[in-house]
Design a protein around this nucleic acid. Structure first.
Lengths: 215, 215
DNA sequence: GGCGATATCATACGCAGGTTTCGGGTGCCT
DNA sequence: AGGCACCCGAAACCTGCGTATGATATCGCC
């Protein structure tokens, strides 16, 4: 189990070919996989690796600005941890990058150890993120196996309504609600109502008929 | 209701008396309350205001370093939003401050509008934090009114155990568990089991007899 | 000693939850 | 036309939940 697993993969986007390959060598010599890209498009075309990874991103690129690209990743839900680097950085740029969730911000020239430490932290963060995402992915899978009616019942049940109240709101008989409810418990693999409530919380399942202003 | 409420309070820690009073005037003219401190000790001695507030903190102080102080506040659970400013800042300092949760990091000289915008964002964040804290405070109040036994029962019930299982684990009869459970529901003002589960999640209540390695 | 809070348990009743078995309906895809 | 998935419902049955009534026991405090 411990012999062949890679420590992680580093994606590098930098328009300077020399620095790109130098960083590649550095990471490879630390036992990390490496993927090199000259621009943001090439990275997006290749797709995010399926293993624990991070992105080392230069801010001054040929085409798109690195900070803009980072924010685009965030807004698109691509949660890969980012290590920013730049030769001409200032404090406002640093604030912007860190606000967008960057793991670190390294002004050039930086030491090998600094970069390695930043990347190690970024990959570790990705590992944590992936573990959490894997947990909810299985849940989401179960939830998608529910029929529309079953989802409605689930939403109302986890708000604390009794079967007869759910039946009233949905215009059904209580017995039908019980059947749907039983199906929900089985499909969601919930051992108890408490379980189901926690699952609903994690999935963000709420009664759509209740319109709130908060949250 | 809307006539007398202050927009918020700004605490300023700076060893430069001139800048201190200049900032004070700036904020006051924007309708904000102001508290001025020359050092960190004076601020701690005065205590955090009870209204929505934020802290404007210079990094280069006479005694303690501003970044150290900020991290101390975080580690002590004092969650006041911080706006950092400095005359001789660099990128590593910015990274450190933002990592510690600073709202903004302003290099001197900065414009009035920049500072006002940062403070407005910080106060808004504090308002959100306080609203969330107030919600859990009331819950914690209810929880503290529970007897030790009732808390045990609550912990086991919200994990999804049935009354008879709770009774088995605690070495009680089922009827006793029911009574405790009823008391828990009344004291916690929970309308349903789903409610109670969510409360327990928010309070971090877990079965102490289950030893986990994660989280 | 008495009082109150906490904790324990029994009996009994009514309501809620959950399943099974049966039946019927729709709509869609083959 | 037949099969399938989804949706609705009734009767019967068992289990679980919740509360009321009533009782006992311990502990700490006034």
């Amino acid at each position: 189990m411990t012999s062949e697993e890679p420590a992680g993969c580093v994606c590098i986007i930098d328009d300077d070919a020399e620095l790109r390959s130098a960083l590649g060598s550095l990471f490879r010599s630390s036992g990390l996989d490496v993927a090199l890209y000259e621009g943001t498009e090439a990275f997006l075309a290749a797709g995010v690796p399926s293993t624990a990874c991070c992105l080392v991103l230069d801010i001054r690129l040929g085409g798109e600005n690195g900070l803009d690209f980072q924010e685009r990743l965030v807004s698109q839900g691509i949660g890969i941890p980012v290590v920013l680097m730049t030769g001409h950085g200032d404090i406002p740029m640093t604030v912007r990058g860190m606000r967008a969730g960057a793991v670190d911000f390294l002004p050039k020239p930086f030491g090998d150890e600094q970069m390695l430490a930043a990347v190690a932290a970024a990959i570790e963060r990705d590992r944590t993120n992936r573990a959490a995402a894997a947990g909810t992915a299985e849940l989401r899978n179960c939830y998608q196996s529910l029929t529309p009616r079953e989802r409605e019942v689930m939403a109302l049940v986890v708000t604390g309504l009794m079967n007869k109240q759910v039946a009233g709101r949905m215009g059904l008989s209580e017995i039908t609600v019980k059947i749907h409810r039983g199906n929900v418990m089985r499909k969601m693999e919930a051992q108890s109502l408490a379980d189901l409530v926690r699952m609903a919380e994690q999935l963000g399942v709420r009664d759509a008929s209740i319109h709130r202003f908060s949250t």
